[in-house]
Amino acid sequence: MTPITEVEGRRLPLSNLEKVIHPATGTTKGEILHYYATVAPCLLPHLRGRPLSFLRYPDGPDGQLFFTKNPPPGTPSWVKTVSVPRSEEKDARQVLVEDLPSLMWAANLVVEFHTPQWTADAPALADRLVLDLDPGPPATVVECCRVALRLRERLAADGLEAYAKTSGSKGLHLYVPLEPAPSERVQAYAKQLAVEAEAELPALVVHRMTKALRPGKVFVDHSQNNAAKTTAAPYTLRARREPAASAPVTWEEVEACGDPGLLAFGLTDMAPRIQDHGDLLAPLLDPDRAGRLP
């Protein structure tokens, strides 16, 4: 029998709690649910108002992975959904996760949480810019940190403040809070930054996705500013053999990173980090921190 748990007045069937999802550490689905309940105060503000896409991995990272934007079958009536513009569908809808019951319902599906750079009430009007720094082996997050520091300087020259988090995979994400601007304009500016970085650091940076160009370099992916694209949300766990988290980091940690292991954070690391630092990405939620594109 599937156990029923009540979360803030909502009854949730939580299934297969002892099932191992992350085989490298033996992490169970129940431990994943506990993780999301613990980080919810920091995670939920970054999801609120943003139509979610899910990368589902119910049988772990070695099982079937599938990406979905539509509300999954069986979505409870009390889980909010919102109409979103999508070229291939007229009346497309996506899930909003804005409270703890909705978060626990989604986490029970075993998902990565992915968000666009805009909110549901202003589609394709980005309120943040993101640069995804992806290292091509043998480059690692150490090289990503070097690139991140240079991009931070470049953004500051335009009056923009950057914040960093690990991708939860191999690289780093840089976020910049913005006064809302059309996604096309934000993407064009992000591409300009990537092209400039490659011109300045040709041995370290590439701005094109072509795999043949990427070994030993950091791909500065600007495409996630496209209104149709999404980025792994802060604090989400990733579909990897170990339960790696997309963790906000300080610039001091970025500057000091000489070993890839220094910026690798898992499920058990996040509660102590939140206790020590709070939400390092809270400035993204503060309208007074938003910068204006040049």
Score class of each variant (00 low, 15 high):
291 G>V: 03
162 A>K: 00
158 D>H: 15
91 D>F: 13
130 V>Q: 03
26 G>N: 08
195 V>D: 02
106 A>T: 01
37 A>V: 10
61 P>S: 01
248 P>M: 00
168 G>D: 02
67 F>G: 09
134 D>C: 06
169 S>C: 09
263 L>A: 04
19 K>G: 02
186 V>M: 04
28 T>L: 03
67 F>V: 10
235 Y>P: 00
127 D>S: 05
193 L>C: 09
27 T>L: 09
89 E>H: 11
208 R>Y: 06
290 A>S: 08
277 H>I: 01
72 P>H: 05
191 K>M: 12
80 K>N: 04
196 E>I: 07
36 Y>T: 07
85 P>E: 08
78 W>I: 01
275 Q>F: 09
132 D>K: 07
283 P>F: 03
249 V>L: 15
21 I>L: 15
105 W>Q: 02
116 P>D: 12
60 G>C: 03
135 P>E: 08
168 G>F: 01
188 A>K: 13
147 V>G: 09
103 L>H: 01
154 R>S: 10
212 A>P: 11
244 A>C: 13
247 A>L: 04
291 G>C: 07
244 A>F: 14
140 T>F: 04
170 K>V: 12
73 P>D: 14
73 P>C: 06
75 T>H: 08
149 L>C: 13
10 R>C: 04
158 D>C: 12
239 A>D: 01
223 S>M: 12
208 R>M: 12
38 T>S: 13
78 W>M: 00
39 V>T: 01
164 A>G: 09
248 P>F: 00
251 W>R: 10
290 A>M: 07
168 G>M: 05
83 S>W: 13
3 P>F: 12
157 A>P: 11
40 A>N: 06
215 P>W: 11
74 G>Y: 02
230 T>Q: 06
227 A>S: 15
29 K>Y: 08
42 C>W: 03
247 A>D: 02
102 S>E: 08
207 H>T: 02
32 I>R: 00
209 M>G: 15
66 F>S: 08
77 S>R: 13
78 W>S: 00
264 A>E: 11
266 G>R: 08
26 G>W: 09
294 P>R: 06
36 Y>E: 06
174 L>W: 05
47 L>K: 05
180 P>C: 06
267 L>K: 00
85 P>C: 06
254 V>I: 15
195 V>G: 03
72 P>F: 01
149 L>E: 15
288 D>G: 13
141 V>K: 04
245 A>F: 04
